[in-house]
Nucleic acid binder design. Structure first.
Lengths: 205, 205
DNA sequence: AGGAATATTAAACACTGTTTAATTATTTTT
DNA sequence: AAAAATAATTAAACAGTGTTTAATATTCCT
Protein backbone atom coordinates (compact mmCIF):
# COMPACT_ATOMS: atom_id res chain seq x y z
CA UNK A 1 0.00 0.00 0.00
CA UNK A 2 3.05 2.24 -0.34
CA UNK A 3 1.83 3.61 -3.65
CA UNK A 4 -1.35 4.99 -2.20
CA UNK A 5 0.69 6.54 0.57
CA UNK A 6 2.99 8.27 -1.88
CA UNK A 7 0.00 9.59 -3.80
CA UNK A 8 -1.38 10.84 -0.55
CA UNK A 9 1.92 12.57 0.17
CA UNK A 10 2.06 14.06 -3.32
CA UNK A 11 -1.40 15.49 -2.92
CA UNK A 12 -0.45 16.86 0.47
CA UNK A 13 2.69 18.36 -1.02
CA UNK A 14 0.86 20.29 -3.71
CA UNK A 15 -1.60 21.53 -1.12
CA UNK A 16 1.34 22.76 0.89
CA UNK A 17 2.88 24.42 -2.17
CA UNK A 18 -0.36 26.30 -2.80
CA UNK A 19 -0.34 27.46 0.82
CA UNK A 20 3.29 28.60 0.68
CA UNK A 21 2.70 30.51 -2.55
CA UNK A 22 -0.49 32.05 -1.19
CA UNK A 23 1.26 33.15 2.00
CA UNK A 24 4.22 34.76 0.28
CA UNK A 25 1.94 36.61 -2.12
CA UNK A 26 -0.43 37.67 0.62
CA UNK A 27 2.40 39.00 2.81
CA UNK A 28 3.66 41.20 0.02
CA UNK A 29 0.39 42.21 -1.67
CA UNK A 30 -2.40 41.62 0.82
CA UNK A 31 -5.27 39.17 0.62
CA UNK A 32 -7.61 40.93 -1.78
CA UNK A 33 -4.83 41.77 -4.23
CA UNK A 34 -3.67 38.16 -4.30
CA UNK A 35 -5.65 36.39 -6.99
CA UNK A 36 -6.14 32.71 -7.65
CA UNK A 37 -4.33 33.24 -10.93
CA UNK A 38 -1.37 34.81 -9.10
CA UNK A 39 -1.08 31.76 -6.87
CA UNK A 40 -1.42 29.42 -9.86
CA UNK A 41 1.32 31.32 -11.70
CA UNK A 42 3.65 31.05 -8.73
CA UNK A 43 3.32 27.27 -8.46
CA UNK A 44 3.25 26.89 -12.26
CA UNK A 45 -0.10 25.17 -12.44
CA UNK A 46 -3.35 26.23 -14.02
CA UNK A 47 -5.81 28.23 -11.87
CA UNK A 48 -8.38 25.44 -11.88
CA UNK A 49 -6.19 23.03 -9.92
CA UNK A 50 -6.52 25.15 -6.77
CA UNK A 51 -10.21 24.24 -6.54
CA UNK A 52 -9.31 20.58 -6.14
CA UNK A 53 -7.48 21.40 -2.93
CA UNK A 54 -9.56 24.25 -1.52
CA UNK A 55 -13.26 24.96 -1.76
CA UNK A 56 -12.68 28.65 -2.46
CA UNK A 57 -10.31 31.55 -1.81
CA UNK A 58 -11.65 31.92 1.72
CA UNK A 59 -10.59 28.41 2.63
CA UNK A 60 -7.02 29.10 1.56
CA UNK A 61 -6.73 32.12 3.80
CA UNK A 62 -8.49 30.34 6.60
CA UNK A 63 -5.82 27.64 6.42
CA UNK A 64 -3.13 30.33 6.41
CA UNK A 65 -4.51 32.18 9.39
CA UNK A 66 -4.24 28.97 11.40
CA UNK A 67 -0.47 29.23 10.99
CA UNK A 68 -0.64 32.67 12.56
CA UNK A 69 -2.25 31.27 15.69
CA UNK A 70 0.44 28.62 16.05
CA UNK A 71 3.04 31.40 15.71
CA UNK A 72 1.30 33.52 18.36
CA UNK A 73 0.87 30.59 20.72
CA UNK A 74 4.57 29.77 20.43
CA UNK A 75 5.46 33.30 21.48
CA UNK A 76 3.14 32.88 24.46
CA UNK A 77 5.11 29.84 25.64
CA UNK A 78 7.62 31.98 27.56
CA UNK A 79 4.78 33.09 29.85
CA UNK A 80 5.19 29.80 31.70
CA UNK A 81 8.10 31.23 33.67
CA UNK A 82 6.12 34.23 34.93
CA UNK A 83 4.74 33.06 38.26
CA UNK A 84 2.78 36.15 39.38
CA UNK A 85 -0.53 35.97 37.47
CA UNK A 86 -0.85 39.74 37.25
CA UNK A 87 2.63 40.03 35.79
CA UNK A 88 1.79 37.17 33.47
CA UNK A 89 -1.28 39.05 32.27
CA UNK A 90 0.80 42.13 31.55
CA UNK A 91 3.45 40.10 29.74
CA UNK A 92 0.69 38.56 27.66
CA UNK A 93 -0.42 42.00 26.52
CA UNK A 94 3.13 42.83 25.60
CA UNK A 95 3.59 39.69 23.54
CA UNK A 96 0.23 40.23 21.89
CA UNK A 97 0.91 43.74 20.67
CA UNK A 98 4.49 42.88 19.69
CA UNK A 99 3.17 40.06 17.52
CA UNK A 100 0.57 42.35 15.99
CA UNK A 101 3.02 45.15 15.21
CA UNK A 102 5.64 42.78 13.82
CA UNK A 103 3.15 40.82 11.71
CA UNK A 104 0.43 43.34 10.86
CA UNK A 105 -0.82 41.48 7.80
CA UNK A 106 -1.07 38.20 9.63
CA UNK A 107 -2.79 39.90 12.57
CA UNK A 108 -5.20 41.55 10.16
CA UNK A 109 -6.07 38.17 8.70
CA UNK A 110 -6.50 36.60 12.14
CA UNK A 111 -8.54 39.26 13.92
CA UNK A 112 -9.80 41.92 11.54
CA UNK A 113 -10.57 40.60 8.06
CA UNK A 114 -13.95 39.09 7.38
CA UNK A 115 -12.59 36.67 4.78
CA UNK A 116 -11.31 33.71 6.80
CA UNK A 117 -14.02 33.95 9.45
CA UNK A 118 -16.74 33.74 6.83
CA UNK A 119 -15.41 30.32 5.97
CA UNK A 120 -15.74 29.27 9.61
CA UNK A 121 -19.39 30.30 9.87
CA UNK A 122 -20.26 28.59 6.59
CA UNK A 123 -18.70 25.23 7.41
CA UNK A 124 -19.66 22.26 9.53
CA UNK A 125 -17.51 22.99 12.61
CA UNK A 126 -18.97 26.39 13.36
CA UNK A 127 -16.85 27.53 16.25
CA UNK A 128 -13.70 29.52 15.71
CA UNK A 129 -11.35 27.13 17.48
CA UNK A 130 -8.13 28.97 16.60
CA UNK A 131 -9.27 32.11 18.35
CA UNK A 132 -10.89 30.06 21.10
CA UNK A 133 -7.54 28.65 22.16
CA UNK A 134 -5.86 32.01 22.68
CA UNK A 135 -8.91 33.48 24.39
CA UNK A 136 -9.03 30.59 26.82
CA UNK A 137 -5.40 31.19 27.64
CA UNK A 138 -6.27 34.77 28.57
CA UNK A 139 -9.36 33.63 30.42
CA UNK A 140 -7.34 31.17 32.55
CA UNK A 141 -4.81 33.86 33.41
CA UNK A 142 -7.58 36.16 34.54
CA UNK A 143 -9.01 33.36 36.67
CA UNK A 144 -5.58 33.02 38.28
CA UNK A 145 -5.53 36.75 38.96
CA UNK A 146 -8.92 36.50 40.63
CA UNK A 147 -7.73 33.57 42.76
CA UNK A 148 -4.80 35.76 43.79
CA UNK A 149 -7.25 38.36 45.04
CA UNK A 150 -7.40 40.75 42.12
CA UNK A 151 -10.40 42.04 40.13
CA UNK A 152 -12.79 41.98 43.06
CA UNK A 153 -16.43 42.26 42.04
CA UNK A 154 -15.68 41.59 38.40
CA UNK A 155 -17.19 39.03 36.03
CA UNK A 156 -14.31 36.94 34.66
CA UNK A 157 -15.79 36.25 31.22
CA UNK A 158 -16.82 39.82 30.46
CA UNK A 159 -13.60 41.17 31.96
CA UNK A 160 -11.53 38.88 29.75
CA UNK A 161 -13.39 40.10 26.72
CA UNK A 162 -12.87 43.71 27.75
CA UNK A 163 -9.13 43.25 28.30
CA UNK A 164 -8.69 41.44 25.03
CA UNK A 165 -10.65 44.23 23.36
CA UNK A 166 -8.33 46.86 24.80
CA UNK A 167 -5.18 45.42 23.24
CA UNK A 168 -7.01 44.42 20.08
CA UNK A 169 -8.48 47.88 19.79
CA UNK A 170 -5.10 49.57 20.08
CA UNK A 171 -3.38 47.45 17.47
CA UNK A 172 -6.32 47.29 15.06
CA UNK A 173 -6.81 51.05 15.05
CA UNK A 174 -3.12 51.28 14.29
CA UNK A 175 -3.13 48.65 11.55
CA UNK A 176 -6.18 50.18 9.91
CA UNK A 177 -4.55 53.62 10.03
CA UNK A 178 -6.89 55.37 12.46
CA UNK A 179 -4.02 56.78 14.54
CA UNK A 180 -3.69 60.04 12.64
CA UNK A 181 -6.01 61.58 15.21
CA UNK A 182 -3.44 61.53 17.99
CA UNK A 183 -0.73 64.19 18.25
CA UNK A 184 1.69 63.76 15.34
CA UNK A 185 4.82 63.37 17.44
CA UNK A 186 3.18 60.55 19.39
CA UNK A 187 1.74 58.49 16.57
CA UNK A 188 4.85 56.38 16.30
CA UNK A 189 4.63 55.12 19.88
CA UNK A 190 0.94 55.47 20.71
CA UNK A 191 0.26 51.74 20.87
CA UNK A 192 3.00 50.95 23.39
CA UNK A 193 2.19 54.18 25.26
CA UNK A 194 -1.43 53.09 25.42
CA UNK A 195 -0.37 49.70 26.75
CA UNK A 196 1.68 51.48 29.40
CA UNK A 197 -1.45 53.33 30.53
CA UNK A 198 -3.27 50.02 30.68
CA UNK A 199 -0.53 48.62 32.93
CA UNK A 200 -0.91 51.56 35.31
CA UNK A 201 -4.61 50.75 35.60
CA UNK A 202 -4.01 47.04 36.15
CA UNK A 203 -1.66 47.91 39.00
CA UNK A 204 -4.62 49.36 40.86
CA UNK A 205 -6.91 46.36 40.51
CA UNK B 1 -26.34 84.45 -13.40
CA UNK B 2 -29.31 82.26 -12.42
CA UNK B 3 -28.69 79.79 -15.20
CA UNK B 4 -25.21 78.93 -14.01
CA UNK B 5 -26.61 78.54 -10.52
CA UNK B 6 -29.26 76.11 -11.66
CA UNK B 7 -26.67 74.09 -13.54
CA UNK B 8 -24.60 74.05 -10.41
CA UNK B 9 -27.60 72.81 -8.44
CA UNK B 10 -28.38 70.14 -11.04
CA UNK B 11 -24.84 68.87 -10.83
CA UNK B 12 -25.02 68.87 -7.05
CA UNK B 13 -28.33 67.03 -7.21
CA UNK B 14 -26.99 64.18 -9.32
CA UNK B 15 -24.01 63.90 -7.01
CA UNK B 16 -26.44 63.57 -4.13
CA UNK B 17 -28.45 60.96 -5.99
CA UNK B 18 -25.32 58.90 -6.51
CA UNK B 19 -24.56 59.13 -2.81
CA UNK B 20 -28.09 58.13 -1.78
CA UNK B 21 -28.05 55.15 -4.15
CA UNK B 22 -24.58 54.13 -2.99
CA UNK B 23 -25.62 54.34 0.65
CA UNK B 24 -28.78 52.28 0.29
CA UNK B 25 -26.93 49.61 -1.67
CA UNK B 26 -24.02 49.58 0.73
CA UNK B 27 -26.27 49.23 3.77
CA UNK B 28 -27.96 46.18 2.30
CA UNK B 29 -25.05 44.54 0.48
CA UNK B 30 -21.85 45.90 1.96
CA UNK B 31 -19.21 48.06 0.33
CA UNK B 32 -17.28 45.48 -1.67
CA UNK B 33 -20.43 43.88 -3.03
CA UNK B 34 -21.76 47.23 -4.19
CA UNK B 35 -20.45 47.82 -7.69
CA UNK B 36 -20.28 51.00 -9.73
CA UNK B 37 -22.67 49.35 -12.17
CA UNK B 38 -25.13 48.63 -9.33
CA UNK B 39 -25.14 52.30 -8.37
CA UNK B 40 -25.51 53.36 -12.00
CA UNK B 41 -28.45 50.99 -12.44
CA UNK B 42 -30.16 52.40 -9.38
CA UNK B 43 -29.98 56.01 -10.60
CA UNK B 44 -30.68 54.94 -14.20
CA UNK B 45 -27.51 56.39 -15.67
CA UNK B 46 -24.58 54.74 -17.38
CA UNK B 47 -21.67 53.63 -15.15
CA UNK B 48 -19.29 56.15 -16.72
CA UNK B 49 -21.18 59.14 -15.35
CA UNK B 50 -20.12 58.35 -11.82
CA UNK B 51 -16.53 59.17 -12.66
CA UNK B 52 -17.50 62.74 -13.44
CA UNK B 53 -18.60 63.20 -9.86
CA UNK B 54 -16.17 61.01 -7.97
CA UNK B 55 -12.55 60.14 -8.66
CA UNK B 56 -13.08 56.49 -7.81
CA UNK B 57 -15.12 54.09 -5.70
CA UNK B 58 -13.10 55.02 -2.61
CA UNK B 59 -14.11 58.65 -2.87
CA UNK B 60 -17.80 57.71 -2.86
CA UNK B 61 -17.49 55.75 0.35
CA UNK B 62 -15.28 58.37 1.90
CA UNK B 63 -18.06 60.88 1.27
CA UNK B 64 -20.56 58.45 2.79
CA UNK B 65 -18.52 57.79 5.90
CA UNK B 66 -18.54 61.52 6.61
CA UNK B 67 -22.29 61.27 7.07
CA UNK B 68 -21.69 58.62 9.71
CA UNK B 69 -19.57 61.01 11.75
CA UNK B 70 -22.23 63.68 11.64
CA UNK B 71 -24.75 61.08 12.83
CA UNK B 72 -22.47 59.99 15.68
CA UNK B 73 -21.70 63.56 16.69
CA UNK B 74 -25.41 64.33 16.84
CA UNK B 75 -25.96 61.46 19.24
CA UNK B 76 -23.13 62.87 21.36
CA UNK B 77 -24.96 66.19 21.73
CA UNK B 78 -26.96 64.97 24.72
CA UNK B 79 -23.70 64.68 26.66
CA UNK B 80 -23.87 68.41 27.25
CA UNK B 81 -26.30 67.90 30.12
CA UNK B 82 -24.01 65.49 31.99
CA UNK B 83 -22.06 67.73 34.34
CA UNK B 84 -19.83 65.21 36.10
CA UNK B 85 -16.95 64.57 33.66
CA UNK B 86 -16.53 60.97 34.77
CA UNK B 87 -20.22 60.28 34.20
CA UNK B 88 -19.94 62.08 30.88
CA UNK B 89 -17.09 59.78 29.90
CA UNK B 90 -19.15 56.73 30.74
CA UNK B 91 -22.17 58.05 28.86
CA UNK B 92 -19.90 58.64 25.87
CA UNK B 93 -18.91 55.01 25.87
CA UNK B 94 -22.53 54.01 26.02
CA UNK B 95 -23.49 56.22 23.09
CA UNK B 96 -20.49 54.99 21.13
CA UNK B 97 -21.26 51.30 21.42
CA UNK B 98 -24.97 51.87 20.89
CA UNK B 99 -24.21 53.67 17.65
CA UNK B 100 -21.86 50.88 16.58
CA UNK B 101 -24.30 48.09 17.34
CA UNK B 102 -27.24 49.89 15.72
CA UNK B 103 -25.26 50.84 12.61
CA UNK B 104 -22.67 48.11 12.25
CA UNK B 105 -22.08 48.66 8.54
CA UNK B 106 -21.60 52.37 8.95
CA UNK B 107 -19.30 51.79 11.93
CA UNK B 108 -17.33 49.31 9.87
CA UNK B 109 -16.89 51.89 7.15
CA UNK B 110 -15.87 54.59 9.64
CA UNK B 111 -13.43 52.71 11.84
CA UNK B 112 -12.54 49.30 10.43
CA UNK B 113 -12.48 49.25 6.62
CA UNK B 114 -9.33 50.26 4.82
CA UNK B 115 -11.23 51.59 1.82
CA UNK B 116 -12.28 55.16 2.72
CA UNK B 117 -9.16 55.86 4.74
CA UNK B 118 -6.97 55.04 1.75
CA UNK B 119 -8.57 57.96 0.02
CA UNK B 120 -7.57 60.22 2.89
CA UNK B 121 -3.92 59.22 2.83
CA UNK B 122 -3.76 59.62 -0.95
CA UNK B 123 -5.26 63.11 -1.10
CA UNK B 124 -4.08 66.64 -0.38
CA UNK B 125 -5.64 67.06 3.10
CA UNK B 126 -3.86 64.12 4.64
CA UNK B 127 -5.28 64.12 8.15
CA UNK B 128 -8.40 62.20 8.97
CA UNK B 129 -10.45 65.16 10.14
CA UNK B 130 -13.72 63.25 10.65
CA UNK B 131 -12.13 60.92 13.16
CA UNK B 132 -10.10 63.77 14.62
CA UNK B 133 -13.25 65.58 15.70
CA UNK B 134 -14.67 62.72 17.70
CA UNK B 135 -11.31 61.86 19.23
CA UNK B 136 -10.82 65.43 20.39
CA UNK B 137 -14.21 65.29 22.04
CA UNK B 138 -13.06 62.26 24.03
CA UNK B 139 -9.70 63.89 24.71
CA UNK B 140 -11.36 67.01 26.15
CA UNK B 141 -13.60 64.92 28.39
CA UNK B 142 -10.57 63.08 29.73
CA UNK B 143 -8.87 66.42 30.38
CA UNK B 144 -11.95 67.43 32.37
CA UNK B 145 -11.74 64.20 34.36
CA UNK B 146 -8.10 64.93 35.16
CA UNK B 147 -8.98 68.45 36.26
CA UNK B 148 -11.59 66.91 38.55
CA UNK B 149 -8.85 64.85 40.19
CA UNK B 150 -9.16 61.56 38.35
CA UNK B 151 -6.55 59.52 36.44
CA UNK B 152 -3.65 60.54 38.66
CA UNK B 153 -0.27 59.79 37.12
CA UNK B 154 -1.72 59.14 33.70
CA UNK B 155 -0.78 60.59 30.33
CA UNK B 156 -3.92 62.15 28.86
CA UNK B 157 -3.15 61.50 25.19
CA UNK B 158 -2.14 57.87 25.60
CA UNK B 159 -4.97 57.26 28.06
CA UNK B 160 -7.51 58.68 25.60
CA UNK B 161 -6.21 56.37 22.92
CA UNK B 162 -6.40 53.41 25.26
CA UNK B 163 -9.96 54.16 26.32
CA UNK B 164 -11.09 54.69 22.75
CA UNK B 165 -9.39 51.40 21.87
CA UNK B 166 -11.30 49.56 24.58
CA UNK B 167 -14.72 50.45 23.22
CA UNK B 168 -13.58 50.19 19.63
CA UNK B 169 -12.05 46.79 20.35
CA UNK B 170 -15.25 45.45 21.86
CA UNK B 171 -17.51 46.55 19.03
CA UNK B 172 -15.09 45.72 16.22
CA UNK B 173 -14.48 42.19 17.49
CA UNK B 174 -18.23 41.83 17.57
CA UNK B 175 -18.83 43.29 14.12
CA UNK B 176 -16.10 41.17 12.59
CA UNK B 177 -17.55 38.07 14.23
CA UNK B 178 -14.75 37.22 16.66
CA UNK B 179 -17.11 36.77 19.61
CA UNK B 180 -17.66 33.06 19.13
CA UNK B 181 -14.86 32.46 21.60
CA UNK B 182 -16.85 33.60 24.62
CA UNK B 183 -19.36 31.33 26.33
CA UNK B 184 -22.32 30.74 23.96
CA UNK B 185 -24.98 31.98 26.34
CA UNK B 186 -23.12 35.25 26.79
CA UNK B 187 -22.31 36.11 23.19
CA UNK B 188 -25.49 38.09 22.77
CA UNK B 189 -24.64 40.54 25.52
CA UNK B 190 -20.88 40.39 25.71
CA UNK B 191 -20.29 43.91 24.38
CA UNK B 192 -22.53 45.65 26.92
CA UNK B 193 -21.28 43.30 29.63
CA UNK B 194 -17.73 44.25 28.71
CA UNK B 195 -18.64 47.91 28.89
CA UNK B 196 -20.08 47.28 32.35
CA UNK B 197 -16.73 45.87 33.46
CA UNK B 198 -15.05 48.93 32.06
CA UNK B 199 -17.36 51.16 34.11
CA UNK B 200 -16.43 49.27 37.26
CA UNK B 201 -12.78 49.99 36.54
CA UNK B 202 -13.39 53.66 35.81
CA UNK B 203 -15.14 53.97 39.17
CA UNK B 204 -11.84 53.19 40.86
CA UNK B 205 -9.74 55.78 39.00
C1' DA C 1 -1.84 -3.53 -23.80
C1' DG C 2 -6.32 -1.71 -22.54
C1' DG C 3 -9.75 0.08 -19.55
C1' DA C 4 -10.78 2.62 -15.27
C1' DA C 5 -9.64 6.19 -12.25
C1' DT C 6 -7.42 10.28 -11.26
C1' DA C 7 -5.06 14.66 -12.08
C1' DT C 8 -4.77 18.64 -14.80
C1' DT C 9 -6.04 22.11 -17.93
C1' DA C 10 -8.34 25.26 -21.42
C1' DA C 11 -12.14 27.75 -22.03
C1' DA C 12 -15.99 29.93 -20.75
C1' DC C 13 -19.24 32.67 -17.59
C1' DA C 14 -20.54 36.50 -15.29
C1' DC C 15 -18.74 39.72 -12.99
C1' DT C 16 -15.38 43.91 -11.37
C1' DG C 17 -13.21 49.17 -11.60
C1' DT C 18 -11.76 52.30 -14.84
C1' DT C 19 -10.63 54.82 -19.26
C1' DT C 20 -11.46 56.17 -24.05
C1' DA C 21 -13.58 58.08 -27.74
C1' DA C 22 -17.90 58.85 -29.67
C1' DT C 23 -22.47 60.65 -29.23
C1' DT C 24 -26.21 63.38 -27.60
C1' DA C 25 -27.94 67.60 -25.46
C1' DT C 26 -27.49 72.19 -24.25
C1' DT C 27 -25.82 76.79 -24.45
C1' DT C 28 -23.66 80.62 -26.78
C1' DT C 29 -22.55 83.24 -30.71
C1' DT C 30 -23.29 84.76 -35.19
C1' DA D 1 -33.16 81.00 -36.70
C1' DA D 2 -28.77 78.57 -37.96
C1' DA D 3 -24.16 77.42 -36.82
C1' DA D 4 -20.51 76.80 -33.73
C1' DA D 5 -18.87 75.67 -29.18
C1' DT D 6 -19.37 73.63 -24.90
C1' DA D 7 -20.99 70.41 -21.71
C1' DA D 8 -23.25 66.09 -20.33
C1' DT D 9 -23.76 61.39 -21.17
C1' DT D 10 -22.90 56.99 -22.98
C1' DA D 11 -21.16 52.71 -25.45
C1' DA D 12 -17.42 50.06 -25.85
C1' DA D 13 -13.30 48.37 -24.62
C1' DC D 14 -9.43 46.89 -21.38
C1' DA D 15 -7.51 44.15 -18.14
C1' DG D 16 -8.57 41.99 -14.44
C1' DT D 17 -11.49 38.89 -10.82
C1' DG D 18 -13.54 34.07 -8.63
C1' DT D 19 -15.46 30.02 -10.12
C1' DT D 20 -17.42 26.08 -13.00
C1' DT D 21 -17.48 22.89 -16.89
C1' DA D 22 -16.12 19.75 -20.01
C1' DA D 23 -12.28 18.04 -22.28
C1' DT D 24 -7.59 16.23 -22.04
C1' DA D 25 -3.30 14.05 -19.97
C1' DT D 26 -1.51 11.04 -16.88
C1' DT D 27 -1.24 7.23 -13.83
C1' DC D 28 -2.88 2.88 -11.98
C1' DC D 29 -4.49 -1.78 -12.05
C1' DT D 30 -5.97 -5.96 -14.16
Amino acid sequence: MGIADRKERDKEELRERILVAAKSLFLQKGVEKTSIRNIADQIEYSPGIIYHYFRDKNEIFHALHQGGFIQLMEKMQVLGVVRNPMERLKAMGSIYITFALENPDMYDLMFIKEAPIDHVSSSEHDNWKEGGGTFNYLRTTIDDCIKAGHFLGHDAEALSYMIWSTVHGMVSLNIRKRCEVVLPHRQETIVVDGLEEFYKILDKL
